[in-house]
């Protein structure tokens, strides 16, 4: 795109073209740049690994393995080291198990009065889902439940009057 074309397509941009970006640099910035880059290269070189380091790493590792004398560990010391923590852990486990089995759950429920259980249920503390009830009473026939008595005809008419029939059909 030539200047003339730019002027035709974008006259405002063409006008601004003679202006600079407005970006500035600190005085003398470029004078020290070569030295900064060279010292950066030297710093990076110092941190670099020696040349050919990875070529010889395998040999050096094997040499180190060969030169290392195997450690002799006494069997008695080894047994004491392993057995002590195991013995402590086993004792704790035994203590917890005994505590758990000492408590007799049946005694607790046998001592409960029927009235106490009723009060607990009436307070709404028995939180059972429909699924839990059906899984316990699998032979119960829920079809015989007389639910229709729970709502009067007036209640049903009032409910049907409140709802938007179109959205009700769509959602059901």
């Amino acid at each position: 795109m030539t200047r003339k074309e730019l002027k035709n397509i974008a006259p405002k941009l063409s006008e601004l073209k003679s202006m600079k970006t407005g970006f500035e640099i600190p005085n003398g910035y470029f004078d020290a740049l070569e030295d900064k880059v060279m010292s950066k290269l030297i710093t990076e070189d110092t941190n670099d690994i020696p040349e050919g380091y990875f070529d010889t790493i395998e040999d050096r590792v094997f040499e180190k393995i060969k030169n290392e004398e195997p450690k002799v560990i006494s069997l008695k010391n080894r047994f004491v080291k392993i057995a002590t923590p195991m013995a402590i852990a086993a004792s704790i486990l035994l203590l917890i198990t005994l505590q758990l089995f000492n408590t007799n759950q049946e005694d607790i429920f046998a001592n409960l009065e029927t009235s106490e259980i009723e009060t607990w249920i009436n307070n709404g503390d028995l939180d059972l889902s429909t699924f839990e009830i059906t899984s316990v009473y699998s032979d119960a026939n829920f079809e015989n439940l007389e639910l229709y008595d729970a709502y009067s005809d007036d209640d049903l008419m009032e409910y049907l009057g409140d709802i938007d029939l179109e959205s009700f059909i769509l959602t059901n």
């Binding site: 601004l16 202006m19 600079k20 970006t21 407005g22 970006f23 500035e24 640099i25 600190p26």
Partner: peptide
């Protein structure tokens, strides 16, 4: 380090 005019700022 920016001393551009308002129009240069708009351009950026």
């Amino acid at each position: 380090h920016f001393s551009g005019s308002e129009i240069q700022l708009i351009l950026q």
